[in-house]
């Protein structure tokens, strides 16, 4: 409709342009300019020649990432962890939200909600302390309790698969309170007449939950999934790094792309190879988002991200 040119727009909305300018400049500065550095992934990096002066070396830097299947392993881990974390945390959040919403005791409701929300405020560094505090073999609380109960202490560092559960647990631990608040809000927005009518019809609480609450909040659930799909290839670096650290025996089941990139830098001292891995991650992420968004736009256009 609007056939006016850029200049006309600039003149008409110059204040709006000015108002958006700080953010645009900031994002340009912080995010876009460093994007030029992706060429590092294709360079034989030399310190004295710098990013732009170093010579091109094609896909040489990518070889290392895909050698001995590491690239595939960390990609698989990243996707699986994110899916698992997404499903468990959303599931718990919906559950908690429904339970809290149906509660009659006002005081209990408030206090429990506050407590469950608390972990959202806690940094991963502190979670790292928790993990050490609870699970380390010699002095961890878990083993102290087991010993006090005259049971054999367990060494969780020997069984990598357990860490999938631990990571999943702390992920939910941190996010459930926050997500459940959103779901509670979404439940509150359901027309109360629905519930009243159901009650008059003699529906019990299970039926209300399964036939009214869950169908009504399903768009919210869908949106929450969508928002998180965008991060499917970005492992929460801070979480993994603080919980697992550089503990080699756990890598098979805990290594995600981000921790792998960080560790490569640490051990190889080479900056071009990690850059290649980062580039691979960005491209894959981009492709997945575009595919998912395209699919949604075709099926549920209202929910498309952009």
């Amino acid at each position: 409709m609007n056939k006016h040119g850029v200049l006309y727009e600039l003149r008409k909305n110059r204040t709006l342009f000015l108002m958006a300018l700080p953010a645009v400049l900031l994002v340009f500065l912080i995010s876009y300019i460093p994007m030029a550095g992706i060429i590092l992934a294709f360079k034989d990096y030399r310190f004295d020649l710098g990013v732009f002066g170093s010579h091109w070396n094609g896909f040489e830097n990518f070889k290392y990432f895909f050698n001995s299947g590491t690239g595939l392993r960390v990609t698989r881990n990243t996707i699986l962890y994110n899916l698992l974390n997404l499903i468990t945390s959303q599931l718990f959040a919906v559950m908690i939200a429904i339970f809290i919403h149906e509660m009659r005791g006002k005081y209990f409701k408030k206090v429990s909600q506050s407590i469950i929300f608390l972990p959202f405020f806690i940094s991963w560094t502190i979670v790292g302390v928790f993990v050490y505090n609870i699970f380390n073999y010699e002095t961890g609380t878990l083993n102290s309790v087991l010993k006090a109960l005259h049971m054999a202490p367990v060494n969780l560092y020997e069984s990598p698969s357990i860490w999938i559960v631990i990571i999943c647990f702390f992920n939910s631990w941190k996010w459930v309170g926050y997500t459940s608040v959103i779901y509670i809000a979404s439940i509150l927005s359901i027309d109360s007449e629905c519930f009243e009518a159901a009650e008059i019809d003699g529906a019990n609480v299970f039926q209300k939950v399964f036939y009214i609450t869950i169908p009504s909040i399903s768009p919210t659930i869908f949106i929450m999934f969508l928002l998180n799909i965008g991060r499917i290839l970005r492992g929460d670096f801070q979480m993994f790094y603080q919980i697992v650290g550089n503990n080699g025996q756990l890598f098979d089941s805990t290594d995600v792309i981000d921790t792998f990139v960080f560790r490569s830098l640490l051990t190889s001292g080479d900056i071009a190879m990690p850059a290649a891995a980062t580039f691979y991650q960005s491209v894959l992420c981009f492709v997945i988002i575009m595919a998912v968004n395209g699919f949604i736009r075709r099926t549920r256009p209202d929910n498309a991200l952009f």
Binding site: A20, I30, A36, G37, V51, A275, T278, C285, F306
Partner: peptide, 26 residues
């Protein structure tokens, strides 16, 4: 007029980034 383009300008950065190294150097 450019509000959608603006939105995409921002959203794009969550998909694609230069990685810690180039950000660090910059």
């Amino acid at each position: 007029k450019y509000r959608n383009k603006l939105a995409f300008f921002f959203y794009f950065t969550t998909l694609f980034n230069g990685g810690i190294l180039s950000t660090y150097i910059f």
